[in-house]
């Protein structure tokens, strides 16, 4: 066996796949945010011409899929696998949005960590020479997420300041064994971490220890330091979670403050937009990566990025039964150069 596994949780890919194309479609609110110029498409209203929120989210996924294929100059015949998932029960949006794709399909659930999880699996498939081209895809929708996890839209409730705003959007990437980068070089798969936080309106705090654990493990496994990166970005910790994560990592002896950001803080302008602690959802890290980060990598503004999508693995049943919120974070190391 080729010794690809390094340290406890990390794989150093020997045939690093390239991210040859990305695509992102976002909702109107995201389309008014600071990253609006980076997304491929901004839909005009959340219904997206469909009769239910679930159908709208499936359509987001379907459209992103065809967009990313087109941008990569590929057809479904070129694809070996789709690895996709979302937040809805039984991964409804991925299953229904991609049912006509005709491509071998691996449905994954990592809550909001799905983008990094699917990219990890896709990279392993390519590195293992099981596949040449893989599409990794995810989505979330504010309205369908509210309906499933929180309250009906028209219920007159207040959100506490720690609550986050589920991003409406879908992001996808095409990974290929051929290409000239950016390359996925390392994968650190997170373990489930539960520090006992029960407040469903403070998911950032629930997920921060998982993000810290994965990032610190990544440093230990690879021997990299914060200086190895020009951006370390978590998925959707929001303002409170990001601050906690930053401090927890500092306690472990690493200082990432200067190069650390969070997709949930990047996608909305919290001063101007009603997003409370920031954005969340699978679509948050997916669209920020596919829209903003990938373009900055291509421009050479960024060269080494650690993309750490974070997921809160709760269900409505578990929180009604008084359970705390288990969380997971997966890290994908992306670089313009191969060392």
């Amino acid at each position: 066996m080729a010794n690809k596994k390094i340290g406890k949780q990390t794989v150093k890919l020997q045939n690093p796949p390239s991210v040859i194309a990305t695509a992102s479609i976002v909702g109107p609110k995201e389309g008014e945010g600071p990253l609006r110029l980076y997304f491929d498409e901004i839909i005009e209203d959340e219904n997206f011409g469909e009769k239910s929120w679930e159908k709208a989210e499936s359509k987001l996924m379907r459209e992103t899929f065809s967009k990313v294929l087109k941008k990569a100059n590929k057809t479904t015949d070129d694809l070996d696998y789709i690895v996709a998932g979302d937040l809805l029960n039984q991964c409804l949006a991925a299953n229904f949005g991609l049912r006509e794709s005709g491509v071998p399909f691996l449905g994954v659930y990592g809550a909001c960590s799905t983008m990094a999880e699917s990219m990890s699996i896709g990279s392993l498939l390519i590195d293992g020479e099981f596949a040449k081209n893989v599409v990794c895809l995810t989505s979330s929708h504010f309205c369908s997420a509210e309906k499933q996890f929180r309250f009906p839209l028209e219920l007159g409730t207040q959100r506490p300041p720690t609550a986050q705003w589920t991003v409406t959007g879908s992001g996808g990437v095409v990974l290929s064994n051929e290409g000239s980068g950016p390359y996925i070089t390392h994968i650190t798969t997170g373990k489930i971490v539960d520090m006992g936080i029960k407040d469903v309106n403070n998911m950032g705090a629930a997920m921060a220890p998982a993000a810290m654990d994965t990032i610190v493990t990544h440093f230990k496994d690879t021997g990299f330091t914060p200086e190895s990166y020009d951006l370390i970005v978590t998925g959707d910790l929001g303002a409170i979670g990001k601050e906690i994560c930053d401090e927890l990592i500092q306690e472990k002896g690493y200082n990432i403050s200067n190069i650390y950001n969070d997709c949930g803080l990047m996608i909305f302008d919290r001063e101007r937009q009603d997003a409370h602690a920031g954005g969340s959802g699978c679509g948050c890290s997916a669209t920020v990566f596919a829209g903003f980060i990938y373009k900055k990598l291509m421009e050479g503004v960024l060269n080494n990025v650690l993309f750490v999508a974070t997921g809160a693995l709760l269900s409505t049943t578990s929180s009604q039964q008084g359970e705390s919120i288990p969380s997971v974070a997966h890290a994908v190391s992306i670089s313009n150069t191969l060392s």
């Binding site: 300041p161 006992g196 403070n202 705090a205 220890p209 409170i240 601050e243 906690i244 002896g253």
Partner: peptide, 18 residues
Amino acid sequence: QKTLTKKEYQKYVDEKSP
């Protein structure tokens, strides 16, 4: 470095959360 217990972490989060 020290590892926070769940109780300590909850307290820490409460202080951090507005």
